[in-house]
Amino acid sequence: MAEKSCSNQGCTKESCEGCPSKKTSFLVDQNIYSNVRHVIGVVSGKGGVGKSMVTATLANRMTEKGFRVGILDADITGPSIPKMYGLHGPAVADDNGIIPVVTENGIKVMSLNLLVPNEEDPVIWRGPVIANMVKQFWSDVIWGELDFLFVDMPPGTGDVPLTVFQSLPVEGIVIVSSPQDLVRMIVTKAFNMAKAMKIPVLGIVENYSYLVCPDCGKKISVFGESHIDEIAASLETEVLGKMPIDPSLASLADGGKFSGQKDTHLDAAVEKLYKLYRENPKDDEE
């Protein structure tokens, strides 16, 4: 259908402000010293499913593939990415913006924990202040040249996910879940929010999917049998991986050594991202 246009052929940009036919965009301009090609959100319908673990794993994998990668930690009140990589602030700023801190494996990271004087101080802010901070992580941070920026969002469907979807050019999201009784409802909520915001869902990652017995190698379904395949099918999306409960990952994260993580469970997610890059390289864009 043709786009509706103003009937006044002599109108100007100024006179058209407020015209009902004018499209509204809430997108925030990225820092002029940044060129981020693909923004991928990592979301979950509830907390405690290992969303940051999946975010960091995807960032590590894409870095291993030779891509230039960053992580925007949008979980303002519960940031964990710096701790996982052993990063500490304060982040440095100059006249051009805030410079992200870089992990041992070359991932650029920005998080509130890299800006506050004491990492253990609580963030007691109202929603609008938190939302504005997320916008500043896009507009004020000098990301430089990045192929992928992963946005680690807080759980749920509240202010921050809404702000990210409206303010950043998110090309797709990865939904993180766990094999628990309420997973269908929770995944569906996250899926429906993305659908309402017209954000493509790249697929679902099931974390804590099983535990491998260290003695016999048997897979044990600690949280019950997984139904993620049928849930993904009902939503017409893909399962991008099933990550097990792995104590060694918790040890790496707690010790700030997550740069050394080696993953073999998210190959489908990596291929999906690689396909996105091949189909939309966004080279030499204005």
Rank of each mutant, 00 (worst) to 15 (best):
E236S: 10
A91N: 14
F67D: 05
P79A: 10
E145D: 15
P100T: 07
I40C: 06
M153T: 08
A269T: 07
E236D: 12
I245V: 05
P90E: 11
E14F: 01
P179N: 07
K46V: 07
K242Q: 15
I32Y: 11
V134C: 00
S248P: 01
V212N: 04
A250L: 05
S209I: 05
W143K: 08
E104L: 09
E225M: 05
V102W: 07
S7D: 14
L27T: 13
K218P: 00
C6R: 11
E171G: 10
L168W: 03
V116W: 02
E145Q: 13
F150E: 00
S259D: 13
A59E: 03
P82T: 10
V101N: 03
K282P: 05
L266P: 03
T57Q: 08
L249G: 00
V183N: 07
V141W: 02
H265C: 12
T57I: 10
V205L: 02
M197D: 02
E119P: 13
L115K: 06
V39S: 00
Q166N: 12
S44N: 11
L168C: 02
I220N: 14
P214M: 10
L168Q: 01
S226K: 05
D181S: 13
M84D: 00
V187S: 10
E171Q: 15
I199G: 13
T77N: 09
G172T: 08
E279D: 15
L72F: 08
Y208L: 13
V102I: 14
Y33R: 11
N31P: 14
E14H: 03
L273P: 05
L266M: 13
N8F: 02
G86C: 09
N207K: 01
I175R: 04
N96M: 14
I32V: 15
V270Q: 13
K218Q: 14
I107Y: 01
Q180E: 14
K282S: 13
K46Y: 09
G50M: 11
V36C: 01
G89Y: 14
W143F: 06
Y208T: 03
N118P: 01
A232L: 12
N8M: 01
G47D: 14
V164Y: 01
D152P: 03
A56N: 09
E104K: 15
L240R: 04
P100Q: 04
I130P: 02
F150H: 00
K135Q: 06
M62E: 00
F148R: 04
P154S: 02
P247V: 06
G78H: 02
P179M: 10
E279I: 11
A194V: 05
R126P: 09
E230G: 04
D95M: 07
R184Y: 05
S52N: 09
G241N: 03
N60F: 08
E145H: 06
S15I: 11
E3L: 14
L72G: 08
H38D: 06
A91R: 14
I124C: 01
Y85W: 14
P200K: 12
T63G: 01
S259R: 03
A196R: 15
P200Q: 10
